[in-house]
Amino acid sequence: MSIDVKGLVHVYHPGTPLETKALDGVSFKAEKGSWVAVVGHTGSGKSTLAQHLNGLLLPTEGSVSVDGIEVRQGEGSLRKVRQKVGLVFQYPEQQLFEETVFKEVSFGPRNWGIPADTLKDRVEEALGLVGIGSDLYEANPFRLSGGQKRRVAIASVLSSGPDYLVLDEPTAGLDSPGRRQLLDLLSNLKALGRGIIHITHDMELALGLADMILVLDEGRSSLWGRPDIILGELIERDVRGLVIPDMVRFAGRLRDLGFEVPLTWEPPVLAEAIYRSQGR
């Protein structure tokens, strides 16, 4: 069970002066029960890719399939795919539209025909998972603070119980407890067999949590591999828009000076290694 992307090309406004090839032959596979991080410079095609995974955009060339169902017009493909794949947009305002938080989060499950008696539980569970309390159920989503909007947008996708979650910069605008809570939640969902596709600019997060990392560069999949492999590549060569995490650079400089420390992005691991190395 997986999302399979093969040779995906997306051209915006073909045949006009605005023609832009946003994706140019992207291939990768996101399996159920795994976490794929997608990173890349501003404008590299991440959000365009995200919208292909649940059929909001359709391929100009190449293909996307979800558990063997090809994403295309006709034969109810799009409805099936959208039930399987939930997309959390880059800006919550792109997603929110209901008058109250409760209605917003009920929309998905109601649309998929969840019976009314379980609907309330589903909605309350989803809101609980993102830390939105009952005091905000009747609030207008557009009058919430930025981080609260983000939480509601995530809950409104969770409430449908999709098999795959595509999240476009979901930690942007969250405070640190909110961010931890979300990442724990995603780890749990992964352990329960859901597939996580996580677009992020936070390299430490990608390196620390993902099973596989896809690096986009001007619409091409420039790197695809395990975090340790990707980190090695980042150290070897310049990748547009990306930087080596501070802590890895710090560890690198200490290594050059004779310290025996690993190239890690985990503070306690690095501190402990420095302590041991210094002790000798």
Partner: peptide, 10 residues
């Protein structure tokens, strides 16, 4: 919070 969506280099 005007830098939330910038890549690390940006």
């Amino acid at each position: 919070e005007a830098t939330t969506m910038l890549d690390p280099r940006g």
